[in-house]
Nucleic acid binder design. Structure first.
Lengths: 202, 202
DNA sequence: GTCTATATAACGATAGAC
DNA sequence: GTCTATCGTTATATAGAC
């Protein structure tokens, strides 16, 4: 029935909202039911348990964060252009879903086994073409010696940390929400240049 | 009594261990009591409630992460040397306390009010001398235009994110614990040069 | 101060009527 | 498929003996 699909969808969206905001142990089934505007029993009818409902939400969260990264670095682009695309992708994503990066990383941190379960499903290895591209750029003297893994983590660090640490940033720097928005917008432009050129004049 | 102090200390250390690992909502008073080797009632005798015990642990956590940063950037050093010290400080700290950064940032994320409560206590503003130092370096053409806040967040991002995202990193890159250790050691050397010189040959 | 026992509330989950 | 009512457990917290 179309009725069925709608209810399941409503529950899932409510669960996504509450789990992303409160985490697994902080989330309450009652609150998810309230958010979905239905009865608590329906949650179990459609998803059997809190664990299974969470698993579904978590998997969706990981799929929003990781596959696009691998897709971008697998494209036929320069390293610089890949960096620009990755930075833009994450800044757009986290603007729309501010709780997403903390949710995914926190649950990965607490329950790594839940992550490992399905990480293989969507072939999440670093593409060889990307590894080759970085190594070749180093060999040709275009880049200073750096391992592809370090390169990738540098980009991810600069994109994800300020999203994860928003409350620390706005508190210490005494920012308004608009200030923070501008701060992040500025980073979007800055990060690729920082990665490749650094801060010193040359 | 010395007896009193010892028990309170034991409880606090157990609470620190459990809260840092499991977070507020994931932690159980019973587990803290077990970890401390005492009865559950003692937790309430000394700290009244889970909330108050947590608050005490959280405050200590923030104090381990932030004041040292402000102390370092307030020293009489070049920007490069300050960066080296900050990077070394965080890598040493997170090697000893791997759960600390996720704990502090996650609880800040979920309960920003708990953070704001006492952030003023230990004067956690960016020292003016540091702001002046960055702005002066930019004016003198030694650095490309960058705001001091962005500079600081770049350093923190590169230090903290890989510690927070350890499980993601080791899973995606298929690292052992030793691999991860070596990976982080390598970053410690790399980060200051990345910040200032970037990756391109020049 | 430290223990045992228990109060009290909240949570996840299920049974059963409709 | 959706509701009400409730079970069984577990959580924080307290009372009271020693």
């Amino acid at each position: 029935m179309t009725e069925e699909k709608e209810t399941e969808e409503k529950i899932f969206e409510a669960a996504r909202y509450v789990f992303e905001r409160d985490g697994f142990s902080g989330a309450r089934m009652q609150e998810i039911a309230d958010e979905a505007g239905i009865n608590k029993s329906m949650l179990h009818y459609y998803f059997r348990s809190k664990d299974k409902l969470f698993h579904s939400v978590f998997k969706t969260g990981v799929k929003k964060v990781l596959p696009a990264l691998f897709q971008i670095i697998n494209k036929d682009l320069t390293l610089y252009d890949k960096t620009v695309e990755v930075v833009r992708f994450y800044h757009d994503l986290f603007r729309r879903s501010p709780h997403l990066p903390m949710f995914v990383l926190h649950e990965m941190h607490q329950h790594p086994e839940r992550f490992k379960e399905f990480i293989g499903e969507f072939r999440q290895k670093i593409p060889q073409t990307f590894l080759d591209q970085v190594n070749k750029a180093v060999q040709e003297g275009k880049l200073v010696p750096i391992k592809p893994h370090q390169f990738l983590i540098n980009v991810l660090s600069l994109c994800m940390f300020p999203a994860i640490a928003k409350n620390m940033v706005v508190t210490i720097f005494e920012m308004s929400d608009d200030d923070y928005e501008a701060f992040m917008k500025e980073r979007e432009e800055m990060i690729p240049d920082l990665i490749f050129k650094g801060l010193m004049f040359h």
